[in-house]
């Protein structure tokens, strides 16, 4: 097998993440306390007009939650696809020196496929916004 346990034998243990948990607790505490505090601190003089959505001063027309342009959605999907390809670069980059030229050429092929897909979507007009 081409893999060895090096990936697994790193020094980090679950305990290394403990401070992060601490920080999370601290941050959640901070956010929570602030939110609650401001909720009670501010004045409460609500009128129905005040609680209407702002649409540049005219009355609200329809519900805002309508389907948005498909382009945004397409971007999101493309991101998902390309992002997982990017993920593949990370282990490669970390082990890059040990893998040498062989690894480089393998990665070159990978980049070629990456670019293949990339050029394809661009040529297909998936990222054309001016229409």
């Amino acid at each position: 097998m081409f893999l060895d346990t090096e990936l697994l034998s790193a020094t980090t243990t679950p305990f290394s993440y403990f401070p992060i948990v601490l920080q999370l607790v601290a941050a959640v505490g901070f956010v929570g306390v602030t939110m609650v505090a401001t909720h009670f601190l501010g004045p409460k003089r609500k009128t129905s007009d005040k609680l209407v959505n702002f649409e540049s001063g005219i009355e609200q027309i329809g519900n805002a939650r309508q389907p948005v342009a498909i382009k945004y959605f397409l971007t999101a999907i493309l991101f998902v696809l390309f992002d997982v390809e990017v993920i593949f670069f990370y282990p490669y980059a970390v082990n890059f020196k040990e893998l040498g030229w062989d690894g480089f050429f393998a990665m070159l092929m990978f980049v070629a496929f990456f670019m293949g897909g990339f050029i394809y979507i661009i040529k297909k007009g998936a990222l054309k916004w001016e229409d």
Binding site: L3, T5, E6, L7, L8, L81, F88, P91
Partner: peptide, 21 residues
């Protein structure tokens, strides 16, 4: 060769991404 399972995870993620798309 126990790291193979982690590589497997990588592939699952990739395929899952393709499936998501």
């Amino acid at each position: 060769d126990a790291a193979a399972a982690q590589i497997f995870v990588f592939f699952i993620m990739v395929v899952a991404a393709a499936e998501v798309a």
